[in-house]
């Protein structure tokens, strides 16, 4: 009889434990969507200038006070953000991140981010700045605030030396162009040059093999990708180094974090004096892209050539 009652107590206890866990999990689900609204309201309030204590992000002063800034970078996108053999973060974005830490007088805590979670990191304030090859788009600008750009990105077209395509109008009847499915190159060509026949491949490796086997006359992709490819592969030249709309890469902060945004913009403008991003290019990107593309890739002082 004694043992039976022990088991009963255990069962009652267990029911409560499980009920509590379930309640917590439901609260987390329900709370998430509610929190989203709150975050939205908070950022709207921050945007109008009023300083609410309930914001997700940390202001410039709060960062300075804490002595550490959290910067989200890629840890596996050589040469923009990667980790070297000694476990140190390196790359074009990281070089700039270190300078930000230095000029703010705080330690930099690098957070490894993925392409898919960069916006989420800013929306929850888990990082202060994202410096992860973040292309400025209108869609993203609704959720985060972009600072001034520090790099250009466009499409490029690489072709064999035997017949270098320097303009899309050189393509003749029956000529096909390689693209990787789902890339901006594919979208751009379908939209702007529907007359061109595309050969689509799923992976970088397959597209590369197709070009080398002569399946098509040219390969369109991000210009950084085709430039790096041409430099590594003798016999291939980038005939069109920048095609279509010029996009830019910029630091991003949480929506409404005006103090930090303003500081970064001032920093980028100030760094133009010493040609900081040219130095950055020479230190991190030159090995991959050579000297020829420095002017077309680097944006100094936040001023793009088109402006």
């Amino acid at each position: 009889m004694m043992k039976k009652s022990v088991i009963n107590i255990l069962k009652t206890f267990a029911v409560w434990v499980v009920a509590l866990m379930l309640l917590l999990s439901l609260a987390a689900c329900g709370g998430a969507s509610k929190g989203q609204q709150e975050a939205g309201e908070a950022s709207a309030a921050g945007g109008s200038g009023s300083d609410q204590g309930d914001t997700v992000f940390r202001t410039l002063d709060e960062i300075k006070e804490s002595g550490t800034i959290n910067i989200g970078v890629f840890s596996d996108k050589n040469p923009f953000g990667y980790v070297d053999e000694n476990g140190e973060y390196q790359g074009y974005d990281v070089y700039f991140a270190r300078r930000i830490g230095e000029d703010l007088g705080v330690e930099v805590n690098f957070v490894s981010t993925e392409a898919a979670n960069r916006v989420e990191y800013l929306e929850t304030g888990k990082v202060d700045i994202i410096l992860a090859n973040f292309t400025v788009t209108a869609e993203r600008a609704e959720k985060v605030d972009f600072a001034l750009p520090y790099m250009n990105v466009a499409l490029g077209v690489v072709s064999p030396d035997s017949r270098v395509i320097t303009d899309l109008s050189e393509l003749e009847e029956g000529d096909e162009v390689i693209v990787i499915s789902g890339t901006t190159a594919e979208t751009y060509l379908i939209e702007n040059n529907p007359e061109i026949t595309l050969q689509k491949y799923d992976t970088y490796a397959n597209a590369k093999n197709a070009l080398e086997n002569g399946n098509a006359v040219a390969w369109a992709n991000d210009n950084t990708e085709v430039i790096a490819y041409a430099l590594q592969s003798p016999g291939y030249t980038v005939g069109i180094p920048s095609l279509g709309s010029q996009d830019t890469i910029a630091p991003a902060v949480s929506k409404g974090n005006e103090s930090l945004l303003a500081w970064i913009n001032e920093e980028i403008k100030g760094l133009a004096e010493e040609q900081f991003f040219h130095k950055d290019y020479e230190a991190t990107l030159q090995d991959t892209y050579g000297m020829d593309y420095e002017e077309s890739l680097v944006v100094e002082g936040g001023v793009t050539k088109q402006d």
Binding site: S75, D76, N78, Y82, V83, Q90, S112, A116, N117, T288
Partner: peptide
């Protein structure tokens, strides 16, 4: 867990592969 910023064995391997891509 690499999606929430934890660097575990698979992420380290991707970092090593990418750092030596060239």
């Amino acid at each position: 867990v690499l999606m929430i910023g934890v660097v575990e064995v698979l992420k380290v391997s991707q970092q090593i592969i990418e750092a030596n891509r060239m």
